[in-house]
Design a protein around this nucleic acid. Structure first.
Lengths: 193, 193
DNA sequence: GATCTAATTAGATACTTATCTAATTAGAAG
DNA sequence: CTTCTAATTAGATAAGTATCTAATTAGATC
């Protein structure tokens, strides 16, 4: 969802997020009407109605036709329906950047120059750090424990803890002191990890 | 559209008529997220996010799941879509009372005790008075001019004007000084009447 | 049990806006 | 050309609300 679409959508919702304007739309759904007429139907003063109509007009949800002194307003049903359809899709559309924003922020605060400053206490954040660490290992390759340690040590001295965590999240598998990276789809997602 | 539906609809639009909340919905469309995470994605403080989430929660557009200290919020896609569908129909639904409100008001101000106090200057209002007057005549019946006058006179002394107006709007037809009421569907609707 | 973490609640501020009355504009009618 | 009518614009007020910081709660960790 682009920035432009977002503001347009907000404007649209704002336009209808008001009892008087919603009633106006309802009254105009039947037929065109003058300002005076609308004021009497809604039991509001004419300037107030004029104010609301100008907002709807700015969004092209209504249009106006002049006849003598009378201004007849009518609904743009197409515009209205187009907007409503747009909301159906827009609110469901993924914005794939969201996740990265969060992960980047967590990484920035716990990693500096490829060195882990501190291991986050919360599982949520720890998982992000470990994910970052796991990606340093190739998928096909087998890593003896000693080699694993050599890679991890400059990143974080307590290699034992990280080894244990990596296996715990099932980001790496261990067999006879030989480690191998696991496909991301198989990583543990339980609430305990 | 009932009063209840109207307020519900206004509440719904209000909930989405805000950039932050719309972004929240977008972020939650992908997956559930913690308050902290959402705050970092939207670049807002946590209390602010909490405030917005509580509004969405009150309308049941999102729900929450607790896990330790973390509160995970997730979208109620069904509720969202149901609401959106409701708007599609609601804004188009006629509220058949609107017209009567206006007509009644005009009648009240120009007619009293079945007597026309004054003939409105504006065509719009004049038409309403004449419509009321025309309904005093039966459809099938033929009215000689003299009988017509007898009926109109107690309502408004200047019978000539009213006769002319009724014919002008094509609410009544005249042939050899005999008048007959015209079916409403054939009344003149031009901008000059 | 003391400390830490994530979230909520309370309170304050600044911005928006719905509504009214009064003033102004523009067209119609006498 | 003066008067009347419908609508808009201007200006004022009051209500609502998005956001922040500070304080509080509740759960987890050491």
């Amino acid at each position: 969802m682009s920035e432009q679409d977002l503001t347009t959508l907000v404007q649209f919702f704002k336009a209808l997020a008001n009892e008087s304007r919603l009633k106006l739309v309802g009254a105009l759904a039947q037929q065109e009407r003058s300002v005076e007429e609308l004021a009497s139907i809604l039991e509001l003063k004419e300037p107030t109605v004029s104010h609301h109509l100008s907002k709807l007009k700015k969004l092209q949800l209504v249009h106006m036709r002049v006849e003598g002194n009378t201004h007849y307003y009518y609904l743009d049903l197409d515009a209205l329906q187009a907007m409503q359809k747009a909301t159906l899709t827009a609110t469901q559309v993924a914005q794939p950047v969201s996740e990265d924003i969060w992960e980047t922020k967590v990484l920035n605060s716990f990693v500096e120059n490829d060195v882990i400053k501190e291991i986050p206490a919360s599982r949520k954040k720890r998982r992000i750090i470990l994910k970052w660490l796991a990606q340093k290992f190739e998928l096909e390759r087998l890593y003896p424990e000693q080699e694993l340690n050599q890679i991890i040590k400059p990143i974080y001295p307590d290699t034992a803890t990280l080894r244990r965590e990596l296996v715990g999240y099932n980001m790496m598998q261990r067999e006879d002191s030989i480690y191998q990276r696991v496909l991301e789809t198989n990583w543990r997602m339980d609430s305990n990890y």
